[in-house]
Design a protein around this nucleic acid. Sequence first.
DNA 1: TTTCATGTAACGTTATATGTTGCATATCTG
DNA 2: CAGATATGCAACATATAACGTTACATGAAA
Lengths: 152, 152
Amino acid sequence: MKRDSRLSGVLHVLLHMAQQPGPFTSETLAKAMDTNPVVIRRIMAGLRDLGYVRSEKGHGGGWRLACDLSKVTLRDVYTALGSPALLAMGNRTEAPGCLVEQAVNAALDQAFHDAEALLLSRLGEVTLAMLGDDFRKRLGSRKLQGMRAHGA
Amino acid sequence: MKRDSRLSGVLHVLLHMAQQPGPFTSETLAKAMDTNPVVIRRIMAGLRDLGYVRSEKGHGGGWRLACDLSKVTLRDVYTALGSPALLAMGNRTEAPGCLVEQAVNAALDQAFHDAEALLLSRLGEVTLAMLGDDFRKRLGSRKLQGMRAHGA
DNA sequence: TTTCATGTAACGTTATATGTTGCATATCTG
DNA sequence: CAGATATGCAACATATAACGTTACATGAAA
């Protein structure tokens, strides 16, 4: 099954934007993510509708963050993407008349629902600000490594 | 994202087989599942390799259960299918040099891993025998309803 | 030997994420 | 106002994977 990477992609964009004041054109962001500007606009549209980012047309236009990063969770971002399917598996048919299928669906649905709930819960515990902190920590580590490599 | 229904499908087949001694031809099973005989053979191949079912060619041939239903879990069946992807989402790129991407991936991987572990755990708690019991319970309820509808 | 059944490869179909092009619209600059 | 820059969006192209279908080989029973 082909895996949906929009959540990963949009988080990448948001974190890059958090490092500089902006604005950022779709083309700039697309280059950083090695994709197409239209793809950027597509995945950012939901975020804009929910007020997490703003876009402006024309000269000096582009995308800007418009939210408190410590108040937006990964789950919020997921929702802004339209809450796409989380699980790669599903039942063969919904609303089955077959009792065998009902028994199978009931068991699978239970397991699927639990897994989805846990995933959403975990995503809800992580804010964009926390991701930013992690990024800066990694940046510090890399700098230290570089200094060591140069004999400092 | 299109959802994989092979697990749901193969469970459906196994439970149907558990209701009668068999053997069952691929064509019979395919009709019950409203699909193609070749699809049946395809999803049953992994189960045969692990010894959960046996197949015989020629006259009077077909598929038979070859395991203790109380010892095979939904997770075993999932594994027999080749352990396909559980989650519909994934990271944009693996092995990223970008520190932003590393931070994003670390957070998502954590959540994804937890959800997958829970799902596998839940599937491991349910045996085929338990599904069979649930089916028979539903069958009983339906019979009762039918009797009530006829004024009993 | 004929018939029935699985085993498997090859190809077609469908759905969805992703990539691309084209053009309309809005905004800034000169 | 004219031109350049940027988003908004529709339409179409591409890649991939599940699912469906056809064709033929192999093996077993009547």
